[in-house]
Design a protein around this nucleic acid. Structure first.
Lengths: 140, 140
DNA sequence: GTGTGTGCAAAGGCTTTGCAATTGC
DNA sequence: GCAATTGCAAAGCCTTTGCACACAC
């Protein structure tokens, strides 16, 4: 709930309207314990508010993303998944076989990102990192 | 040309037919110095062979990918890009603003991948790594 | 000759957009 | 009240598929 309040108060601070649709979308993102797709948000919200429209979901996600309140990641299945920035955990191991997603700690990546910054003069967006591969179960 | 011969001979070794379409697709992939999309292949091939069809491109790419002869990567623009496996493992820095793609050396990543392997029992697919962020020009 | 591979056209997923109606501030 | 936001429907991308014909082997 913490982040939900942050996101919604940030929206109104910036002069955006707090419509019921937006509130429900924010809450769906917040209640999701991992990355959530537009359609998942849509279905979840529509279960309680049948008039919800998927374009509203996309437009809200676009807005949240522009404001830097959520991150967009493509986990390799041809659709974008969203995640509240307030939740931390932005690095993932995505199993290409079973689809399992494991978070990895930021501290593991920082040294590499620093090195890339120095060597290539490139600032890595740490919110946007995913490694694909095979988890232990799927390697057997 | 080296890799092209590898890919095409591999196909016929495995009993797949070497049609003119496949040959041109292979050559387009091989001549591309970076990652190439299905549509880019299609346009390039169609310039010389107007009957080329985009579904043939997709079907050939699917085949090459199943056989492990090319890798698929989503650079974050909502389309898949393909790369000949023979060209070596590339890791990339993708600028989220101007789209520039810079290759980074494999040696920079190996230590991290090893560490991930040990700590999370996860085998990172080194063919499939991209970092998003901002290049020097776009940070000004 | 035979069955793999192609071309065509249509459909499929996901996402975006135009526009009129609605509604938060 | 008025501009921001929504709902709806349609379109836009990229990609896949069904089917009849063509052609590599």
């Amino acid at each position: 709930m913490e982040q939900f309040r942050d996101m919604s108060s940030r929206l109104s601070e910036l002069g955006y309207r707090l419509t019921p649709q937006r509130i429900m979308i924010l809450s769906a993102i917040e209640n999701s314990d991992s990355h959530i797709s537009a359609e998942e948000i849509y279905l979840q919200v529509r279960a309680r508010y049948p008039h919800m429209n998927i374009s509203t979901v996309y437009r809200t996600l676009e807005l949240l993303s522009e404001l830097g309140l959520v991150t967009e990641t493509d986990m390799g299945d041809g659709r974008v998944r969203y995640h509240s920035i307030g939740k931390g955990h932005h690095h993932h191991l995505v199993c290409q076989k079973c689809g399992e997603i494991v978070d990895i700690e930021e501290s593991m990546l920082s040294p590499l990102c620093d090195e890339i910054g120095q060597r290539y003069d490139f600032k890595v967006n740490m919110k946007h990192v995913a490694f694909f591969g095979l988890c232990s179960k799927c390697r057997e």
